[in-house]
Design a protein around this nucleic acid. Structure first.
Lengths: 124, 124
DNA sequence: TTCGTTGTTCGTCGAATATCGAACAAGCTG
DNA sequence: CAGCTTGTTCGATATTCGACGAACAACGAA
């Protein structure tokens, strides 16, 4: 793939509150964070969103540049994980509050895993 | 003044998480929210920020439209107050987390009250 | 009524953002 | 090596955003 040259990944101390807030102000990106909320590392290929792959790549980059997620590359594919610990250290309670609110109104519901049946209606 | 026609003020149930997050992703607006964090209603004239008044008006509008603040008009001047209760109802913990993080790194420190000596160095 | 005060709105600019399709690059696979 | 898969990057748009100064509107005061 495109090398993902210099994946950047800001250090914990470098996280910027406005930047993180901005990264978390897009429904699609909130949806991605919700998917990653369980702490599991997800493969790019598992992610399904109603946008072109280049657009999804862009959003994942915004999250990564802001320090919200960490991307790892393994062979041809890459994996994403939420940097929950780092975020909690710098902005205590922020992610939890966001996730609570986002779940309550299903923000970013268009984003789901490949294994999911139909987004909201997971079971049955 | 410019009438402030149809101040809009979304109802509590209408608050949008992405919109609120976006409103809170600007350093200057975060600074304003920090000023209003004590729950006190502030007059427009008390607010000091390193931008033109039209720009400040714009930011206050963004906050109001997103439902973060409420603006009241009294005669010639208007007053602003943080809609903390409403925000807490819809997005529990969000404002508190934001304020905690913002205070920790003095985000939006350029915004202060007219009575403040020099922003950070309040006393002496 | 004529000012002065106080904010809002307008027009404009440059920068940033969201999106897409196409081209590209880096690893596997055959 | 040739080809496939998987993402990234590159334009190209269209939209939005932040900022400013100037014009405007509403109210109180002289």
């Amino acid at each position: 793939m495109g090398a993902m040259r210099r994946a950047h990944h800001p250090a914990t101390e470098e996280l910027s509150l406005p930047e993180v807030m901005a990264a978390l102000s897009d429904p699609l990106r909130i949806g991605l964070v919700r998917l990653l909320a369980d702490g599991a590392e997800r493969g790019w290929g598992e992610l399904r969103a109603p946008v072109a792959k280049s657009t999804l790549s862009h959003h994942l980059r915004v999250l990564r540049d802001a320090g919200v997620t960490r991307t790892r590359q393994e062979g041809t594919r890459c994996f994403v994980v939420l940097r929950r610990r780092d975020l909690e250290d710098r902005f205590p309670g922020l992610v939890e509050a966001l996730l609570g609110a986002a779940d309550a109104e299903d923000v970013g519901g268009g984003v789901h895993l490949a294994s999911d049946a139909g987004s909201t209606a997971a079971c049955r």
